[in-house]
């Protein structure tokens, strides 16, 4: 899959030939699946080919979008990169881990979890997946900080306040339980927590789905500003071309577990080639 990354820019995250099959992982499961067959379920083995042959690179300061309908495999790709589930095959490399020479899929689960402290962070659609709702906003941010060895109470509070300010959560709410927050505010806290240790790679899984339109617009504005300021390499997974258009420069279109088209976001929006992309764009244009 071509990636359109200029050779001069070194990647922060590289995914090559990533595949995830639920069920029989043998090649027999691949036959008869994919967009040309209109299904991700293998007719011979019954296995679900959730994602196959997904490759891309993301450079620092760049945001890559992955778009597709429900069940297209975009979230599976993200969960494999985040380490929430194991890929069946393929390579995932981070520049921050041994200068990109290590395939993260070969690491032990414990080592993989440790990467989530400093090297890679994820923001989930449901704030409850990334936050402890029965802990204060400051306490949620204290989690990744103490995990990497922060031991000063005042230092942690200062850093948490700084992050909350950056995501525009009023500091007066810092010591309130996240359960008492609105959906948009919870999402902002989740973003603050993800940024706590300045990770070089940020994964955003449907970050604004589930928020009402005006709140979503505010969170999107925030994310766009953060992506520009921080120089983080971001992967944005969404079914909404509006989100992809606003946050990313390049995009992959996924359907039935495969990438059907990829390119620059604005070009793809103007001139989608694959019939499925055309459908998605038409849907976005309403």
């Amino acid at each position: 899959m071509s990636t359109h990354t200029p050779q001069s820019r070194p990647w922060a995250l590289k995914v090559s030939g990533l595949g995830r099959i639920y069920g029989d992982p043998s090649p027999a499961s691949l036959t008869g699946t994919g967009p040309e067959h209109g299904t991700a379920v293998s007719p011979s083995t019954g296995a679900v080919v959730a994602a196959w042959d997904v490759s891309f690179e993301v450079a620092p300061g760049e945001a890559l979008g992955i778009i597709g309908e429900s069940g297209s495999g975009k979230s599976t790709v993200m969960r494999c990169i985040a380490g929430d589930e194991a890929a069946t095959t393929g390579g995932i490399a981070l520049r921050s881990v041994a200068d990109g020479t290590v395939n993260l899929c070969d690491l032990l689960p414990s080592a993989r979890r440790r990467l989530r402290l400093k090297d890679i962070a994820a923001v989930y659609q449901d704030p409850a997946a990334g936050l402890n709702l029965d802990v204060t906003a400051g306490g949620n941010i204290a989690d990744p900080l103490t995990a990497v060895g922060w031991r000063s109470y005042d230092g942690i509070r200062q850093r948490a306040a700084e992050l909350l300010e950056r995501v525009e959560v009023p500091l007066s709410r810092m010591d309130d339980l996240v359960r008492t927050f609105s959906g948009g505010m919870r999402q902002r806290v989740q973003i603050a927590k993800a940024l706590a240790n300045d990770p070089p790679v940020l994964l955003l899984d449907e970050p604004t789905t589930g928020l009402d339109a005006s709140v979503a617009a505010g969170v999107l504005d925030l994310l766009r500003g953060l992506l520009e300021e921080t120089g983080v390499a971001a992967v944005v997974v969404s079914h909404d071309f509006g989100v992809i258009d606003m946050l990313t420069r390049r995009v992959l279109v996924m359907k039935h577990g495969r990438v059907v088209e990829s390119g620059l976001t604005d070009q793809l929006l103007e001139d989608p080639q694959h019939p499925y992309s055309q459908q998605l764009v038409a849907a976005a244009r309403g």
Partner: peptide
């Protein structure tokens, strides 16, 4: 315990001081 991952214990102490 196996991974010496005690961040949640520290968050618990942090929350105690906050409250």
């Amino acid at each position: 315990h196996a991974e010496a991952d005690y961040a949640k214990m520290w968050v618990w102490l942090y929350e105690d001081i906050v409250h």
